[in-house]
Amino acid sequence: MDPVSLELPHTLRGPQATAGYGPTTRTTQPIVTGTSVVAFKYKDGIMMAADCLASYGSLARFRNENRLMKVNETTVLGVSGDMGDFQHMKHKLEDVMTHEYDMDDGQALGTKSVYKCLSNIMYGRRTNINPLWNSFIVGGVDGGERVLGYVDLYGTTYMADSLATGFGKHLAVPILRRRVEGRADEITEEEAVAIMDDCMRVLLYRDCRAFNKLRRAKVTAQGVEISEPYSLATNWSYAESIVGYGV
C-alpha cells in the first residue's frame, strides 16, 4: 500500500467526493508558472532558451528555477506553464531514462522517441480531462537529424525549424520567422546566440512575467550543453518616451 495516502478532494472518488466537497474537479488553472521558451534549429544543432523565474501569479516568486531539462545525451526539454506539473513530468521522464539505462542494450531513446512519449502522456492526460498545465518544447539531434517539437496541455503537437511557447509565440516567433526560417542550415552558433538574445530581450521588455536571468541550451552532435544563468544588456531609458498605453 502506498504509504503516502492523504485525503484530499482530488484523491477522493465516487459519492464521497461529491457529498463532502462538491463535484470532483481537476486542474483548471496553473499556480506557479514559468513563461516563454524559445527554440530554433541552426547549423550545428538546436538552441533553446528560457528564463529562471517561476511566478506565483504576478509575484516573481522563485527566481532561480531551471526550466531547461537535459533528458538524455541528445535531448533537452524546455518548459512553460505549471512548475509542479513539470516536476511531475520530469520524474516520469527520469523513470523512463532509468529504465533505458537498466536495459543496457546500446539502444538509446532518441529525441523523436522522447517527443512521442511526451506527446502521448500529454494527450492521454487531456483526454482524461486532467491535463498537465504545460507547453513543452523538445529539442535534440536524433541520428544526425535535428529535431524540434512542441506539445501543450491540449495534446497539440507540431514540429518546425523555430518554435516558442507562451508570450514567445506572439513576440519571438515573428523575429524567428524573419531570421531563422529557411536559413536554419546557415546560421552559425554565434549568430544563433545573437538571434536568441534578441528574442529573449524583446520578451523581457514586453512580457511582465519574464526575468533577466536566463539559461541557454544547445544540442549538437557532441551532446547537450545547458549554460549557467546569465543576463542580457538592456536599455530602459527610452521607456519614458513610450506613451499611449493607458499611462
Partner: peptide, 10 residues
Amino acid sequence: VYGRALPVGR
C-alpha cells in the same frame, strides 16, 4: 508509445 521499433533483445 515511443515511435520506435521494439529492440529485439527486449
